[in-house]
């Protein structure tokens, strides 16, 4: 069901985005909007947004999944609850504060934006990885060990596949949140769809504002559906 309907919905959402863009570009409110919103510019901002989200999410995955795995190994296991508690506290820090802090320490540009988004995306993935591994039934890993599997084989053949859907759920949350938070990058010179919203605000043109708001929403919904599909497939 998922494999059939999700792609359809994703295509539908994508077409809405395309139609909205075409509509604004072809029927601008006035010359100011016409100058500001062109196919090239929207495409450019979209790519920038993709880049911000993609880079930070990728960084988050390659850092937090290994970290999560390490924290569930016997040697570091005792640390996991404390790390989880810390992560939970950090997750309450608002995204704007994280972006602002990274600017405060690193100045403006896309780099501090990516770092901020990376840190923010790291938290849900890390907490889900920890929980995913902790939820693997100890009897199953014990059976695997008892059958004579080497520790790393148990990890990759047994634990990781069983925790996979939980990890994917974390990535899904992280990516959806990051798409929204990446709008804030516009404030710190990181670009992305936030530029359109700020510009729309500055020139008070609802058309620009709506387009700038709608495109990230559509992106977030599409990403949510996409990762939902993967998450379901990751379920054993």
């Amino acid at each position: 069901m998922v494999s059939l309907r999700s792609p359809l919905k994703i295509v539908l959402l994508g077409s809405i985005g395309v139609l909205m863009t075409v509509w604004v570009v072809e029927n601008p409110q006035d010359s100011v909007v016409a100058r500001l919103v062109t196919y090239d510019k929207v495409w450019g901002l979209l790519l920038q947004h993709f880049y911000l989200v993609g880079a930070s999410a990728l960084l988050a995955v390659v850092t937090s999944v290994p970290l999560g795995i390490a924290l569930t190994r016997p040697r570091l296991k005792s640390w996991a609850p404390r790390v989880l508690a810390l992560v939970n506290v950090c997750q309450t820090v608002p995204s704007l504060a994280v972006v602002a802090l990274s600017v405060g320490f690193m100045g403006v540009g896309s780099r501090p934006a990516i770092i901020a988004l990376w840190i923010y995306a790291l938290l849900p993935i890390l907490s889900n990885t920890l929980v995913g591994f902790q939820e693997v039934d100890p009897a199953i890993t014990e059976a695997a060990h008892g059958m004579g599997m080497k520790a790393w084989r148990v990890l990759f053949r047994v634990e990781l596949p069983m925790a996979a859907s939980m990890i994917m759920a974390g990535i899904r949350t992280a990516v959806t949140i990051t798409i929204g938070s990446a709008i804030l990058a516009a404030f710190v010179g990181g670009g992305g769809m936030g530029n359109l919203i700020i510009a729309g605000n500055n020139i008070s043109r609802a058309q620009v504002l709506v387009l700038g708001a709608a495109l990230p929403v559509l992106m977030a919904l599409m990403a949510d559906l996409f990762f939902e599909g993967i998450e379901k497939r990751a379920k054993y």
């Binding site: 506290v89 309450t92 820090v93 608002p94 704007l96 504060a97 994280v98 602002a100 802090l101 600017v103 405060g104 320490f105 403006v108 404030f187 710190v188």
Partner: peptide, 28 residues
């Protein structure tokens, strides 16, 4: 935060961000 960014005042930005974070954590 917003004024701090536009005036390039790191201290303003940091004060705003830290206070909001602290309030969030305490409330939570």
């Amino acid at each position: 935060i917003f004024q701090g960014i536009s005036r390039s005042s790191d201290q303003m930005v940091i004060v705003g961000a830290v206070l909001i974070s602290v309030i969030s954590i305490l409330t939570d």
